[in-house]
Design a binder for these strands. Structure first.
Length: 676
RNA sequence: GGCGAGGUAGCUCAGUUGGUUAGAGCGCAUGAUUCAUAAUCAUGAGGUCGGCGGUUCAAACCCGCCUCUCGCUACCA
C-alpha cells in the first residue's frame, strides 16, 4: 500500500440556494468530519476543505423570483450553511465560497492554463436567445410543450410531466420564461473539454487501479466509461459566475460544474500559502466525500480537468453515500420535506451529538436509508442514554459513593479484569480498520461496544455487593471502570465530539491522543468531578411534535408552493359543445406489460364498451377501480399506445404533487349520462 | 429503452477468495439484578438470504431469466 504523508479531505460544496438538511449531514459532512478528527487525533497532517457553491442558473432564477440579486441569495444561504456546520462541529479548516475573489482568480487561471495548452475544443452551436432580455437562455429558462407527452410547461432540459430529458430545440412553441417572448435561435461559441481524450487513462486509473472504491462509485464510473465519453461544454451563456477569461468569452461564464470543484483548490489556497503540497505532492492523499449525485463529476470530469492541467494529483478515494430519505419520502428542498439543520439546532439545543450519532448509525452507506423520528428517539434512549450515558454515570456515581471521587488504585488483577482490559485494544483496532475503509456505521458500532463492555464488567463484578466485604477489590473494579470511561472519551471523540468533551469534564481530564487508547492514563488519586447526565431521554411528545410539524409544513407548502395554472384563453360555447364527455363505468382493468404508468381499461360508456389506455397505474391498482364511475371524453380521436388502440380519455384531476384522482359523479348515475 | 447499485430476522445492516448449525445492533419474550436516566446483564424465539432455473461434491456468494426499489443516462426519440 502506498505511503502518504498528508491528507486532503474535501466535502461536496452545498449549493447556496437553500439551507442544509440532515441528508447533507448524513451523506457527506458527518462522515468526513469523523474521518479527519480521527486522523488529527493520530497526529497526521490533514485538511478538511469545504465551501458553498454559489454559481449556476438555479440561483439566478431564485434571485429573480424574490426580486433580489444573486449575490443577496448566496450571501444569505452561505451564512446559514456555514453557521449550521460550525454548530454541528464539522471541523473545517476552511469553509469558503465560490463567489469570492481567490476563487474567481483560481478558476480563471485554471481555465486559461487549459486554454493555452490547447486542451479545449471550441464549438459553435445554435441556442435560444431572448432579444428583449438581451441574453441567451439556459435550458431552465425555456418552457414549452413537450414533444412526447404534449404537456405544457416542459423545461428546455426536461419535461417534468413525462420525465423525458429534452433538448431545448425539441420543444414545441418555446417561450422565454424571462419575458414570455418566443426566443430566436442564435449562434454561440463554447469551449468543450474533450473527455474522450482521457478515457483510456481513466479506464486504467479507475477500473484497474481503484477496484477498492465502493461498489456504487465503481459501478457508476464503469457504466460511464463503457458507454464512451464525449466532449463536454465547460462554458455557458450567463452573467452569473466566473467570466470566461479568454477572447470571445464576453457575456459567458464557466459552467458551474467546471468552476465548483476548482473551489476545493481555491479554498485550500485561502487557508494556507502551502496549499500546493496538498494538491501536487505525490505523497499527498486526496479524498472526496460526496453524495451519489456527484459521482460522475468527481470521478470522471474533475479528474479529467486535473489531468489536463497536468500538475495535480488525483483523488485516492471518493467515498460516496447514497441518499437519506425522511419518514419514507425523498428529502426535497422545494417541497420543504426535510429536517433543516438550523431549525434542529434551535429546537434541540445541545443535542448535536444525538443527531450525529443517529445519522452515522443509520448512514446510507450502501443503499438509500430512511430517517424517522421514532428511530431517532429509540437510538437516543436505548443506545446513547442506556448504554453509553448509563455506563459512564454508573462508574462516576460509584466512585463518588465509595471513594469520594478519587481514582482508587488497582490491586492485583484477576483473569476477568485482564480479559476485560485486553478487549480495549481489540476494539480500537476494529474502529481503526473500519474508519480507514470508510465504514463509519460499523466503526461507531464497534466504539459503542466499549460501553457495552463496561456495563457487562459492572454486572459481572457487582461492586455494590462486594463493597460490603472487600473494599480493596472494589478499588480495582472502579479503577478499571474509570479506565474504560477515559478510553471512551477518546474513542468517541471523532463521532461525538461534544459528548466526548463533556465526559472529559466529568473526569476532569485533558484531551488525549488516539494512541493513548488502551493505555492506563488515569492517575491514582486524581479527583473527578461530580457527574451530570451525558445524554437525556427524549419523550414521546417531543418526537410527536416533530412529526406533526413535518406534516403541517408539508401540507402548507404544497398549498402555497404550487401556483394554480392560469386560466387558458376563452373559447366559445360551440367549442365547448364539441367535447362529448360522458359518465362511464370501468368494467375491466389490467396493467400493460413493460410500462410504468399505463393501464388498459374497458369502459362501459352507455354507448358501447370501449378500450381506453390510461396513464394512472402509479396511482390506482387495476383491481380497486373496477366498477368505478368516471368521466370519459368519448369523441377524442383514437390513438395507438403500446400497440393498443385507446378510444377516448379518462378525465383526471391532478393534485399539486402530481397525484391523480378520478372525476366521478357523487352518486351513481347511468353510464352514458352526458357531462355538461 | 440502455446502464449501475440494492433486495439477507419485525426494523437497520454485516456476511471476507463459494465450504459445517447464515451473523450483529435495536425491538420482542423469559430469567437475573438494583450502583445507574425502570437504565443493566444473561438466555431465547424469529430467516425457503426477492422469485425461478443452471454450474458445482458444495451457492446468500458464480451464471441465466424474471421481479421490486433507488439512481444515472446521449446534440436517442
Amino acid at each position: 500500500m502506498k505511503k502518504f504523508n498528508r491528507t486532503l479531505v474535501t466535502t461536496a460544496l452545498p449549493y447556496a440556494n437553500g439551507p442544509v438538511h440532515i441528508g447533507h449531514l448524513a451523506g457527506v459532512y458527518v462522515p468526513a468530519d469523523i474521518y479527519v478528527r480521527y486522523l488529527r487525533m493520530k497526529g497526521e497532517d490533514v485538511l478538511l476543505i469545504g465551501g458553498s457553491d454559489e454559481h449556476g442558473v438555479p440561483i439566478t432564477i431564485k434571485a429573480q423570483k424574490e426580486g433580489i440579486t444573486p449575490q443577496d441569495v448566496v450571501d444569505k444561504y452561505h451564512n446559514i450553511i456555514k453557521d449550521s456546520f460550525e454548530k454541528f462541529g464539522i471541523s473545517f479548516d476552511v469553509y469558503s465560497r465560490t463567489s469570492n475573489k481567490v476563487h474567481h482568480e483560481t478558476a480563471s487561471e485554471f481555465f486559461k492554463t487549459l486554454h493555452e495548452k490547447g486542451e479545449f475544443v471550441e464549438k459553435t452551436s445554435e441556442q435560444y436567445y431572448d432579444a428583449e432580455a438581451n441574453q441567451f437562455l439556459a435550458d431552465r429558462y425555456i418552457t414549452g410543450t413537450c414533444p412526447h407527452c404534449k404537456s405544457e410547461g416542459a423545461y428546455g432540459d426536461q419535461c417534468e410531466s413525462c420525465g423525458t430529458s429534452l433538448n431545448a430545440t425539441d420543444l414545441i412553441d418555446p417561450r422565454s420564461s424571462i419575458t414570455g417572448n418566443k426566443p430566436e435561435l442564435k449562434e454561440t461559441k463554447h469551449w468543450y473539454l474533450p473527455l474522450d481524450k482521457y478515457e483510456p487513462y481513466l479506464k486504467q486509473w479507475i477500473l484497474e487501479e481503484h477496484k477498492e472504491w465502493k461498489p456504487n462509485v465503481y459501478g457508476q464510473c464503469k457504466s460511464w466509461l463503457d458507454n464512451g465519453l464525449h466532449p463536454r461544454a465547460v462554458t455557458r451563456d450567463l452573467n452569473w459566475g466566473v467570466p470566461v477569461p479568454v477572447d470571445g468569452g464576453e457575456g459567458k461564464v464557466l459552467y458551474v460544474w467546471f468552476d465548483a470543484p476548482i473551489g476545493y483548490i481555491s479554498a485550500t489556497k485561502e487557508h494556507t500559502p502551502d496549499w500546493e503540497k496538498y494538491w501536487k505532492a505525490e505523497d499527498s492523499k486526496m479524498v472526496h466525500f460526496i453524495g451519489k449525485d456527484n459521482i460522475v463529476f468527481h470521478c470522471i470530469i474533475f479528474p479529467s480537468m486535473l489531468k489536463a492541467e497536468g500538475s495535480y494529483i488525483l483523488p485516492e478515494n471518493v467515498p460516496s453515500n447514497e441518499f437519506l430519505n425522511l419518514e419514507g419520502d425523498k428529502i426535497s428542498t422545494s417541497r420543504n420535506w426535510a429536517v433543516w439543520l438550523h431549525e434542529y439546532l434551535e429546537e434541540f439545543p445541545e443535542k448535536q451529538d444525538v443527531l450525529r450519532y443517529v445519522l452515522t448509525a443509520n448512514a446510507p452507506e450502501t443503499k438509500d436509508n430512511d430517517f424517522t423520528w421514532k428511530d431517532y428517539q429509540a437510538r437516543n434512549n436505548n443506545e446513547l442514554v442506556a448504554i453509553l450515558g448509563n455506563f459512564v454515570n454508573r462508574a462516576l456515581v460509584l466512585t463518588h459513593k465509595y471513594f469520594d471521587g478519587k481514582v482508587p488504585a488497582a490491586g492485583e488483577l484477576n483473569d476477568f479484569d485482564k480479559e476485560t482490559l485486553a478487549e480495549i485494544p481489540t476494539i480500537k483496532a476494529q474502529v481503526e480498520k473500519n474508519l480507514e475503509t470508510y465504514h463509519f456505521r460499523e466503526a461507531l458500532k464497534e466504539a459503542m461496544n466499549l460501553a457495552r463492555l463496561g456495563n457487562k464488567y459492572l454486572a459481572d463484578t457487582e461492586p455494590w455487593k462486594v463493597i460490603k466485604t472487600d473494599e480493596e477489590r472494589v478499588k480495582t473494579i472502579m479503577n478499571i471502570c474509570l479506565q474504560i470511561s477515559t478510553n471512551l472519551s477518546t474513542l468517541m471523540e471523532p463521532f461525538l465530539p461534544f459528548s466526548a468533551n463533556k465526559l472529559r469534564e466529568f473526569l476532569n481530564i485533558e484531551p488525549l491522543a488516539w494512541e493513548n487508547i488502551g493505555e492506563n492514563v488515569i492517575e491514582v488519586g486524581h479527583q473527578i468531578n461530580k457527574a451530570s447526565l451525558l445524554f437525556e431521554k427524549i419523550e414521546d411528545a417531543t418526537i410527536q411534535a416533530q412529526v406533526d410539524k413535518l406534516l403541517a409544513t408539508k401540507a402548507a407548502n404544497e398549498a402555497a408552493n404550487k401556483p394554480v395554472t392560469p386560466a387558458k384563453e376563452n373559447i366559445n360555447f360551440d367549442d365547448f359543445m364539441k367535447m362529448d364527455v360522458r359518465v362511464g363505468t370501468i368494467t375491466e382493468a389490467e396493467k400493460i406489460a413493460k410500462t410504468k404508468k399505463l393501464l388498459k381499461l374497458t369502459v362501459d360508456t352507455g354507448i358501447d364498451q370501449r378500450t381506453v389506455v390510461s396513464g394512472i397505474a402509479e396511482h390506482y391498482k387495476p383491481e380497486e377501480i373496477i366498477g368505478k364511475q368516471v368521466s370519459i371524453l368519448v369523441n377524442l380521436e383514437p390513438k395507438k399506445l403500446k400497440g393498443i388502440e385507446s378510444q377516448g380519455m379518462i378525465l383526471m384531476a391532478e393534485d399539486a404533487d402530481g397525484k391523480l384522482s378520478f372525476v366521478s359523479p357523487d352518486q351513481a348515475v347511468k353510464p352514458g349520462s352526458e357531462i355538461r
